[in-house]
């Protein structure tokens, strides 16, 4: 139905060349879906059976079992701490990285590329993969989780902050250069105030994301609520798994409310 709709859309708004490009794009899309469907390695009998299996699984989750609720809540609090501490450290570390990675503040080409390299490697490797590595180094537990989340967040915060630094109004910087202020003071007076709103917004946003990320660290042994979830699933204790899932849902929604409040308050 989307295709037929586009057809109607096309005649009014696009030149024939654009229309051809659009057709080509949709054809390409259809071919890609066809190729993926035709060659993916799935057992189709399982696919047809999936709704039944899902129904069965969710059936076994009801009613959720609250007997371990106090432990669950305590570990949930620990999960919040992981997210918060990791975000705080990541923010601190990402400041100099953003400074290096922004074209208008970086001292020279080499530092620019160093900054960008840090950002790219941090951002491209997912938290879970970082967690795998740090569990191997620090052993299972929340330290590995904090470091993993931190490593992933540095790239995210640093990239957005770096872009904010590149987009600042350069006129105050010029004015302070003209007063004979040193480099560091120019940063403190002309650049920092301008990126402050972005700084807070990005930190809050990343905290919100990290709250979600920290719920899965436990699945690779890096602490937090994921450990209890994994335990419940491994022992087929579906009612308890359901409690954990509900707890995570509430946590994430609360996190979103808190970050929305902070954003309004600070910006």
């Amino acid at each position: 139905m989307t295709l037929s709709d586009l057809h109607r859309d096309d005649w009014a708004r696009f030149t024939p060349r654009q229309r051809m490009q659009r057709y080509a794009m949709f054809l390409l899309g259809a071919l890609a879906v066809g190729w993926a469907l035709g060659s993916i390695d799935v057992i189709w009998a399982w696919v047809w059976d999936a709704p039944v299996q899902m129904g069965d699984l969710f059936g076994r989750m009801i009613p959720p079992d609250p007997t371990n609720l106090d432990t669950i809540l305590w570990v949930l609090w620990e999960t919040v701490n992981i997210a918060t501490i990791a975000t705080a450290f990541a923010v601190l570390i990402s400041l100099p990285v953003a400074y290096l990675a922004a074209q208008n503040t970086t001292p020279n080409r080499a530092t620019l590329w160093l900054g960008r390299f840090i950002l790219v490697s941090s951002r491209s490797i997912n938290t879970i993969i970082w967690a795998l590595l740090f569990v191997a180094i620090f052993g299972p537990g929340i330290v590995a989780g904090i470091v993993a989340i931190m490593f992933r967040s540095i790239g995210f915060i640093g990239k957005l902050l770096g872009e904010a630094i590149e987009e600042i109004d350069k006129r105050p910087v010029e004015a302070l250069e003209a007063t004979g202020a040193s480099r560091f003071k120019i940063i403190a007076y002309a650049i920092v105030p301008q990126v402050m709103p972005t700084f807070w917004a990005v930190s809050i946003l990343r905290w919100d994301i990290n709250l979600r990320e920290s719920t899965v660290l436990g699945l690779v042994g890096a602490g937090g609520i994921g450990i209890i979830l994994q335990g419940a699933i491994d022992t087929f204790n579906w009612p308890e798994a359901a409690t954990v899932l509900l707890a995570i849902l509430v946590l994430v929604i609360l996190g979103e409310i808190v970050s929305a409040f902070l954003r309004r308050r600070i910006l």
Binding site: D169, R171, P172, E174, A175, E177, A178, T179, G180, Y189, A190, P193, Q194
Partner: peptide
């Protein structure tokens, strides 16, 4: 530069 004051067209204040 400290001995040279400058005033700009766009004021160039830190908002």
């Amino acid at each position: 530069r400290r001995k040279i004051g400058m005033v700009f067209q766009g004021f160039n204040l830190v908002d």
